[in-house]
């Protein structure tokens, strides 16, 4: 079934939202991962950390509460929730690197069957910099990659990443509009097939060997 980009992203964001547990401290990449917050169920309260030094990121600002001194890591004006606090970059990264973040959701250019992630550089074409991504993925207790299954038809889930790595052997889960995979002991395991896809389609659009185990 052919989905629009918007439909694919909504499917992914809704599925990611089901991974949050009440009380989780989470960090979310800019774009698609951040959209997942909109779909978190009302009885699940999470604490969102932003690498620029906000713990307890709330809703985006509107005309009633503009404050140019409070932004998220994407540079957008946000509010801070009750119980939240502002910290400097050292403390923000101690939270990330030091193992104090329960769950991190990021996008990817490529991810592979061994849990390697590439999301910061296409040599000669695209080098915005890694920002906080490398620190974040090293320290997080759990790393979910949320991304569209392919880029312009080309597989993004590979046997081995070809782009420069962000981190080696750290990805736990991959969520796309077609499937949910887990990576355990360097093995890629298909856990869910989206109602909008099929095993055949997933095989055709995934450039890696995987085990099918939908029982977990």
């Amino acid at each position: 079934m052919e989905l629009t980009k918007e439909q694919a992203q909504e499917i992914i964001a809704r599925r990611v939202a089901r991974e949050f547990k009440d009380g989780d401290v989470v960090t979310l990449g800019i774009g698609l991962p951040t959209k997942a917050i909109s779909y978190v169920s009302d009885d699940v309260h999470i604490i969102v950390q932003s690498e620029n030094g906000v713990l307890g990121v709330g809703a985006y600002q509107d005309d009633s509460n503009r404050d140019p001194h409070i932004i998220n890591a994407g540079g957008f004006g946000v509010t801070i929730n009750d119980g939240g606090c502002f910290v400097d970059s050292l403390t923000a990264f101690a939270m990330m690197r030091g193992g104090h973040i329960d769950l991190t959701v990021l996008g990817a250019l490529q991810v592979d069957a061994e849990g390697n992630l590439a999301n910061w550089c296409i040599p000669g074409k695209f080098t915005p910099g890694m920002g906080g991504a490398m620190d974040l993925v090293v320290g997080t207790k759990r790393l979910i990659i949320a991304m569209e299954h392919t880029a312009k038809g080309a597989p993004k889930i590979l046997q081995k990443c070809t782009l420069p790595l962000t981190v080696a052997h750290k990805v736990n889960t991959i969520i796309t509009e077609k499937a949910v995979f887990e990576i355990i002991n360097n093995k890629l395991i298909l856990r869910e097939i989206s109602p909008y896809s099929s095993l055949d389609e997933i095989r055709q659009t995934t450039d890696a060997e995987f085990i099918v185990d939908l029982t977990a």
């Binding site: 620029n52 030094g53 409070i70 932004i71 502002f86 400097d88 970059s89 050292l90």
Partner: peptide, 8 residues
């Protein structure tokens, strides 16, 4: 707010 960043 979030102005501490590297200024600290």
């Amino acid at each position: 707010g979030s102005t501490k960043n590297f200024n600290v």
